[in-house]
Every structure is written in C-alpha cells, then in structure tokens.
Write a protein that binds this DNA or RNA. Structure first.
Lengths: 248, 248
DNA sequence: CGTATTATTGACTCCATTCAAAGATAGTGG
DNA sequence: CCACTATCTTTGAATGGAGTCAATAATACG
C-alpha cells in the first residue's frame, strides 16, 4: 500500500517562509489542485511556494532564464511574450488567475518566452527540482498537468485558426473569450478593464493598433459593447458570439 | 530499491501480436525512447503497440474519438486537422516519423483534432490505460513526455508568430523547416516530395492555393528551389533562411 | 484513353496596413 | 491643484499584399 505522499516528499520540516496552502485557495477548481483529492492537495501544498508581488511590466521570467518550475497566477494577469528572428515581440498568450505557465521551459530547461505582469500580479511556483518526485508520488497530479498542457495546446491552436479569420472576428473572439474566462474566475463577465493597450491587443491578435481602435468603435456603434478607454462593457454577448459561427 | 519496471508493468505475459521493439527502432533518438536508459526502453517496449498501415486519407483518429493513448509516426506522415465553428478545416500541424501526436485528447479524454495519413503511413501506440502506471514506474518517461509536449507548444507558437508574417516568409519557413526535419530523420534535406497539395499547403500556412503556386514559382525564378509538381529541390537553403531573419 | 483532380497564370478587388495628424489620458513635479 | 509631458488613442486618407474569380494547362488515376 502506498504511504502518504508527504512521507516521501518531506525529508525535512517544511519551510514556513513563502508558504501557501492550495487547500484554502479560491482558485482550487481552476489551478493545480483541480481534480486532486484533499490528501493530494495537502501534498502539493508542501512544495508549492508563493512568490512576491510584481508590478506592471515586471518579469515573472525572462526568455533564456533557467527553467525553475511551473508557475500559477494567483492574482492579476500576465502576458507571454516570444520574440522572433526579426527582433519583434509577439504576445502569444494572456494568463489569468489560476492559469499555469512556464511549460515553454520544459524542452531545453531554459525559457523560450518571457512572462510579464500586466498589472499588480502575484504568483505561485511548483519547483522543478521536486517534480520528478511528484510524478512518482502523485501520479494524479501528473495526469492533471498533462491535461493542463493539452488545454494550452488546444488554446494555442484555436488562436492559430483565429489568425486566419478576418479582423472583426478576431476582436469578437478576444472580447468573448476574455469575458467567459473572467466569469469563470468570479469576476464580472460584462464589465472589465483591459489590462492591455491597443498596441498590445493588436500585437496579440495580429492587427495594427489602429484597426483595434476602429473595431472597438464599430462594435460600440453597433451597440455590442461600450468602450470607455480601457473599460469595456459587454452589452450583447450573443451577437459577439454569433460572429464566430456565422455561415461564412 | 526500485524493482525493474517490467515487474510492475506485466501482470501477464506480454501479448506477441502487434509487438514492436523501441530498442531496435531507427527513430529512437527522436521518438519516445529519446533520453531513456536501455532498461527503460525495454520497459516501454512492453506496452507500446504497433498498429496497421494506413493509406493516404485514412484516419489515425477522428475528432471526437475517445482518447486511447499517445501515438508515434513510425513511417510516412500525417496531418493534424482541426475544424472551426464555420465548418472549415485547418491543418494545424504536419507529423513526420518519430513525432508524437494525440495530446489534443488529454484534456477531455476525447480527441479535439483529427489525424489523417498524408501517404502510406504506419504508427505505434502508447496506450492510455497504462500511462498512469508508467508515470509512477518510469518517471523519466514522464519527464520526456513533458519535454515533447513543451516542444510541440513551442512549435505551435512559432507557427502562430509566423502567421503574422508575409506570405513569402511563411513559404520560406515551411520549406526550410521541412528540409531540416527530414534531414534529422535521415532523408535528403535538399530533395523531397511534398505529400501535400497546394491547397493543403495553403490551408496550413493560411494562404490561398494560388498564392502557394505563385510563391513556388517565384522561388524557382530566383534560383532558390526547383519545383517539379510535388517534387522540390532546394538549391539555396541559406537564401531561404535569410528571408526569415532579414532586418524587416 | 478519358475523366477528375490538381496546378498555373492573369485581372480585378478589397481588407487591413501604413502614414499622418490631432485629441485624450495618466502620471509627475512645481 | 494645475501645468506639463509622455504615452496612448482616435480618425482620415492613401497604399498595397494577398484573396477571389476565371480560364487554361498539367497530372494522376481508373
């Protein structure tokens, strides 16, 4: 019979500094603990560390940094930025509370992207030096980690497909998907502040910043949203959604 | 001390039908066995099954199929096809020998994409019902699987970034990357047959098939390649590469 | 050999970009 | 608190890259 994982994990008393408990975290249905038993959550809580709070523009990690583990956004938000051979930067993903990041560091033990806070943001760390032990001792965590990576791959592919669609559709998808993701995390689905500039939204969607501005105006004129600088109010989510599955 | 993994894995004598040996496979430096010890390779060989050979157009799996494990291309090639809400299909990836696929089925236990043979193709299967045991018994396989998924995510992101670049650059990248991937697998880097139609290349790169045709012509006129229907000869790989990091 | 599929090539069109200039917002220090 | 500055946003006009439409040519296949 398997002993409690904590017996394997804890060769010494757990450090109390930076300690967080996944068990008490409000994001337990989204983040790492998702799908784990109470006992397993207690096990991973022993190794998960909380890190200090960052301000907008500060890095969670830089491109080229040594991979130190999987991170989870605790509050705030971050952008994942990859740079190409031309020296341009591309926002490949936006991370919200409860979402995991850092997988880009797995293949080469060095991070392939940079992760940058979009606002005041805190995050947790599942350290890489404990991960092989965790694979062995908490196989259900391994399964969940694979599920998370599978989800992110599917997200990236949605983004890839979206890139072939017209500008209006990309914008509609961006607003709709942000609304739904925020809702899932207990925020308002209909009113939120964009933590991105027009420039950043454009970068993420592959559009010029002027196009972003024009489309937001257009959606407002069509009574789908209200735009007040970076504050968005969704007035007609159904109409936004219907843009995405219109029959060509 | 850990017992040999085979003791855990084999509750009954290994079935001899469909048996393959990863140890003797020429793709061991690319595929699942990559980074594993001889003993570990023997362990996974016990559970990996070979499947029957498929002809062009046949499915490795359909969208919506139950997830049954991670597949590996043994010979030939395949396309990964996702369909959007408009009913259009998108070729999100091309798989060459030694490459793993099926991760799109992890999050929901159902496949999110379809995988279709592009030519006569054979593949192996690491069955999902053995995977949790493998996580526990062969943690290094788990580590390697995560590395593979990380690689695929980074590939998808390269594709995502490429989608914002002009048509010429996408085409150059496609040819260059295909050449390098084939070389790594022991095929000629300078002469190969595209197993995709112009339509399919266009779909994959987000271009009209006419644009693909025009660009291949253009590259030929510039003495970078020779095109004979689906046979490509690369004459100037360096020039193709230089398109990708030109200073805007 | 004949038919279906795939590929080439040209002309025209349009969506989104680029360029340009003015306007709004937020943050800073006097 | 207000002025000042840097950054961000809006809006207009012109341009261009790639798509669409259309017709012909080549290739593969039964």
């Amino acid at each position: 019979m398997r002993k409690p994982a904590s017996v394997y994990l804890l060769k010494q008393p757990p450090p109390r500094t930076n300690q967080v408990s996944c068990a008490n975290c409000a994001l337990d249905h989204i983040c790492l603990p998702r799908g784990l038993s109470q006992e397993e959550i207690d096990d991973i809580s022993q190794v998960v560390k909380a890190r200090k709070v960052l301000q907008r523009g500060e890095f969670l990690y830089h491109e080229g940094d040594d991979f130190r583990g999987i991170l989870a956004i605790k509050s705030g938000s971050a952008k994942l930025v990859a740079s190409d051979q031309h020296g341009n930067e591309h926002i490949v993903n936006i991370l919200l509370p409860g979402e995991l990041l850092g997988f880009d560091g797995l293949p080469e033990e060095k991070h392939h992207c940079a992760a940058i806070a979009l606002e005041t943001t805190s995050f947790c760390l599942l350290p890489a030096d404990n991960m092989e032990e965790l694979f062995h001792n908490v196989p259900s965590l391994t399964r969940e980690l694979f599920k998370h990576t599978g989800e992110m791959m599917n997200q990236d592919r949605t983004q890839l497909i979206l890139g072939k669609r017209p500008a209006e559709e990309r914008m509609a998808y961006f607003l709709m998907s942000l609304s739904e993701r925020l809702k899932r995390r207990g925020f308002s689905a209909s009113e939120f502040k964009l933590s991105l500039t027009r420039q950043e939204i454009g970068n993420h969607l592959g559009l010029a910043l002027e196009t972003v501005s024009r489309l937001l105006k257009k959606f407002q004129d069509e009574d789908l949203i209200v735009v007040q600088n970076r504050f968005i109010t969704i007035k007609n989510l159904a109409a936004l959604k219907s843009m995405l599955d219109a029959p060509e």
